[in-house]
Amino acid sequence: MELYNIEKLLEKYFEATATVAEEEMLRSFFLQKNIPEHLQQYAPMFQYFAVEKEERFTKDLPLKPKRKFVKWVSVAAVAVLVAAINITVPKSTALESEYTQEEIASAQEAFKLLAYNFNKGTKQLGYLEEFQKTTDKFLIKE
């Protein structure tokens, strides 16, 4: 009776229509010692699967604790730095608020005058180039 059942279950097993529970019955049948001769050929399969299930993962798992505060420390450092710069560097206020229009206009005129006179000075320096030319002539002759 039981053997008949086992043969039926084997058939279902190979057609992949057996349930997990039925397959469990087969497994326990084939893992015992006295298996009838004609069924012995199937035993290694079930033994193999049983042995395979014993395999264990033994490698360490280097889990690092999450150091979230490190991230926030850098954010805080940047914030502190920005604040410090804001405090130490005085705000550059706009010119218009510190001086009157006339003062600005006269300052601009003074700068223009200065620039004009500087340019006049550099024009005079242009004559120096002539010296260069004349010495060049001598140099070529030599």
């Binding site: 190979f14 992949a16 229509t17 199937y42 399969m45």
Partner: peptide
């Protein structure tokens, strides 16, 4: 899944 399983089991049996 069933087809693949059946095929795999039969292959193992056959080669055995």
């Amino acid at each position: 899944v069933r087809v693949a399983l059946s095929r795999a089991r039969k292959t193992v049996r056959e080669k055995l």
